[in-house]
Design a protein around this nucleic acid. Sequence first.
DNA 1: CGACGCCCTATTTTT
DNA 2: TAGGGCGTCG
Length: 712
Amino acid sequence: MLIDYEKELNPAQYEAVLTTEGPLLVIAGAGSGKTRTIVYRLAYLVEQGIPPASILLLTFTRKASQEMLGRAGELLGMGMNAVRGGTFHSFAFFLLRKYAHLLGYENGFTVLDRSDAEGLIKQAKEELDIAKGDRSFPKKSTVISLLSQARNKEMDLGDILRQDAGHLDGYREDILRLEKRYKELKTQYQVVDYDDLLFVLEKLLISHPEVLEQERAAYQYIMVDEYQDTNRVQARLVKLFAGNTGNVMAVGDDAQSIYAFRGANIQNILDFPDVFPGTRVIKLEQNYRSVQPILSLTNAILAGSQQKYTKKLFSQKESTRLPEVVKPLSDSTEARLVVAKILELEKEFPLHEIAVLFRAGYHSYALEVELNKMGIKFQKYGGIKFSDAAHIKDALAFIKLVANPLDLPAFRRAFSGIKGVGPKTCERLFHALGAGDRDTIDKACRKNAAIRTVMDLLDSLRESSPTPLSALEAVYEYYKPLVEHRFPDDYPRRISGLDELAQIASPYKDIETFLADLTLENPDQLGSSNMSQDQLILSTVHSAKGLEWSAVILINLVEERFPSRHAMNSAEEFEEERRLLYVACTRAREYLGLFVPSALYNRYYQSNDPAMPCPFLQDIPSHLFTEFKETYGGRTVGVGAGQKTSAPAFSGTSPLSSSPSVSSATTPTTCRHKIFGQGKIVERIDPDKYKINFPGFGLKVIVRDYVELLDE
DNA sequence: CGACGCCCTATTTTT
DNA sequence: TAGGGCGTCG
């Protein structure tokens, strides 16, 4: 035997690795060596003589599966490329493409990404003349979310609207009409969206038993990671592939289920032993990631729940450092305190070992501004996607047209880049092309030579059936010169983004796979170009799933934000927010900082409204953390018993005083203004401006010269 | 018809 | 804050 499994694994992990036959459910707590277990199990299977090609490994991201296969390959000293691995969606795409001829897709098919789908909704809206001039009609992205929610939960759209979107009651009929038209358009253009991938695959397998037999036989061993976040179709697909005697392992953690909004059904993992009789259940409860004080806190978060979770984690990593709760005056001062904390942590950990997590993408805007000011480099996960950037979409539009010449949205994009060509002209050209109306086209080309240029470019590309890279290079020859015009503010960054896209494209042989991977995988995780740099990580909690850092800071832990105000409709949603906080906190190995601003800045009223702390924090006994408060002077001081003089993290001098751009330590807290009288300084916006709260007048931003600064 | 600028409104999480 | 609707000008 090459690997001493018993020595390298703990007893529970060892048992999971050696249980290869029959159904197996592994309940793997956060940081309990889940990945390690899967990696060793892959290695073990191959060592037992199982051909890698007959193993199917379904994970939440492809990066996760690549990491596991890479590590298993190292262990064995051989490549594991033959293992089929990836997400449900990419695996479904792979199979659907293989059997596209059975599904009536003539020229293959394209997968719509989110913005493509939104484009179809927009088109449907225009065609049906819905919501004209109505600014409160839900945005296309909202509509798409609703349609997707309905499908993933396998519920009627009308019911979803009633249940989760009561405020859209008046638009119910229109939204239902949009749904119908959206479906028709997908069929017409031979495109599928994310959700279709799963449902169409299921339909294929059921309606073609010979296909099912063949694929079932191909995969003798199935492993599914993050099972708590699968939805109902995904569970049915697993069942279909595993058959009745199947060797199927599901790995997951009921306490980390955070995708109910997407139809994830916690029942899947709980019911697994019923669906597969004879299931062996193994729990991994020893945590190897976090120090015990962090685990004590996360256990307390779960303990506050009505729901009973299946296990309790423990760690052997001791530490005297307690998690910290920091209470800034407001969310705007929070950003600066977080930066100060990061500077402090940076002495102890490399920047890429520090992460700031938040509930929603936009919660980090203030922090991003502050980080830029201070010149701290960061990488954001779960923000705007790489392929959503306008210049990337532009370039891809041409590539899409090579794969599918009648892709109207891509056509619009490619041609409306030409000066003097707008939506109407695009539409006219598109219809003329579809109808073979050479006259109209020739006329348009004569009027605007650029139209001819683009058409020739596309024609020549289509003829030569290029690789994605060579196609991009040809497109760039035309497109790159336009970038400076189109994005005068930041074209150098855009150009390098295009080069990055070419990098990503380079290993691909055919355009369809390239495009599908781009929509099916988060390119943040595909391209590794800037991963190596030492950068701070900003991430939504959802995108942080499965990752870990030495130091983790959570921001905006107040009601309305965390939990999200949208998650307060039902007990189930509320419970999911608790698990979300649990997931966030269990990402931390050594340092955990929870930032709870006392007030939220309200742009609408230009005021700071008091905010309630995240309710789950109330469930944590106060001896499990150290608490700090920000003073009006911008300093951070310890509160409560045991703090007294020397707080280990924010001691004595203000952490802000070390920052060059803001010197709050010397900023007085009060001042006097000729008209408004005496007020409290809330924030120093820049060296010459203060935000001041004047009793009776509210918050004002005042230039320094107009106020008389009083002592501290 | 297209380009541009103004104003209103509604703000979650992702494959 | 930005996406989208609408008005205005070229």
